[in-house]
Simulated assay, not measured.
Amino acid sequence: MKLNKLCVISCAVLVTTAIVTALSAAQPAITMTAFGALPDGRAAQLYTLTNSQGAQVAITNYGGIVVRIVVPDRGGSMADIALGYENAGKYAAGSPYFGALIGRYGNRIAHGRFTLDGKTYKLATNNDPGGIPCTLHGGNVGFDKVLWSATPLMEKDAAGLRLHYVSTDGEEGFPGNLDVTVTYWFNNANELRLEYSATTDKATPVNLTNHSYFNLAGEGGDTILSHILTLNASKYTPVDKGLIPTGEIVPVAGTPFDFTTPHAIGERIDAANEQLMFGNGYDHNFVVDRDSPKRSGDLVKAAEVYEPMTGRAMEILTQEPGIQFYCGNFLDGSNIGKSNKPYTYRTAFALETQHFPDSPNRPNFPNTILRPGQRYETVTIYRFSAR
């Protein structure tokens, strides 16, 4: 997909509740609609990107949340495969990060602290698995809970949305003013492309990702245990009972974590394995394999998921060194989704492209420190198909 010669649609044009911008009926379109009010009274918007096939991705500027992903099955029937809510108020009231844009630091930082250039920083601690406190997904008010400025974009074969936010020095305990831009593109090949970019005026950890929950048979449906998963990862990072990496990077061979060949998610999920016990199932970071001469910045295929009943498939390509596989172990039916059905135990999975959890405290892990004069840039692509 070419990203040059962008036609930026002025937000001033978006004055009605729903505006479709398209070059013709056979090309992508953007629709903006009201998405409800936040607790402080501010209004959120929903931007629906529709491609020439009629497939859709809907994103709200509240939290950069992917609200809907509507793609066809093998017979051409469309269904929404992403968990979420029907308005911004419900996300603000409480969500296990459904579809959220995550930052400043995706995943966990042990004990809510790290030392950088001789100074120790104390972060908000908002998670305590195993009774061990940590910072999860940016803290109490991460990027998933802020209102981003939004600019719709249009290309010949793709509709897009550019989101911008400045995280101020000291926000949630992190140093530096972090200027962040995230751009979503949805093209005619049913590819959702996420482009992340950031700069800072002080050294700070940065690890941005998206936390969409998927059920390729349709959100609000049965468990995802029959989905077939392949991970391009011959190693993973084991965790302690607080779900913090131990610092080891170990082979998956001979363990229930070996998805280098296709396996049903539920095939070994209840095996007698300490790591599965800690996560109540899979909730682990896998190290993406990169064949030489693949460089760390090259896009490589990290994962593929196939749902046999509908034929829907999803591939994930990324520049990131890791991918977190989580299989909805903490969904308990208390979240009622868009289909007015409860999201219950293991009815969705997440595959979050990322740097490794707790990297600021693990010098042997890939570096996550962004410094002044540098630019953080990374790309992840979700490619949807059916067979």
Rank of each mutant, 00 (worst) to 15 (best):
S212I: 10
A253T: 15
D258Q: 03
G221V: 03
Y196R: 02
D258R: 01
N215K: 11
A253G: 15
D258W: 02
P251Y: 09
T199H: 08
V252R: 08
T237Q: 02
V206Q: 00
A198H: 10
T199Q: 14
G221W: 08
T200P: 01
S197R: 15
L208W: 02
T246M: 01
A217G: 15
F259D: 10
Y213A: 08
F257G: 02
A253V: 13
T255H: 06
G254N: 11
L231H: 09
L243I: 08
E219K: 14
G220Y: 11
N207I: 00
L231K: 07
N210P: 01
T230G: 12
K241R: 13
A203N: 02
G254M: 08
D240G: 15
F214G: 03
A203F: 05
T200W: 07
G220L: 11
G218D: 13
T223H: 08
N215P: 09
F257D: 01
T209V: 04
L208R: 00
H227Q: 15
A253K: 15
T200L: 06
A233L: 08
A233Q: 05
N215T: 12
S234E: 11
H227K: 09
H227L: 12
L243G: 01
I249K: 06
T223G: 13
Y213I: 07
H227D: 15
L231Y: 13
P262H: 00
F259Q: 07
V252G: 04
D258S: 06
P205F: 11
S234Y: 05
D258H: 04
K202Y: 01
D240H: 03
I249M: 08
Y213V: 10
A203P: 06
I224A: 13
A233R: 03
D222L: 07
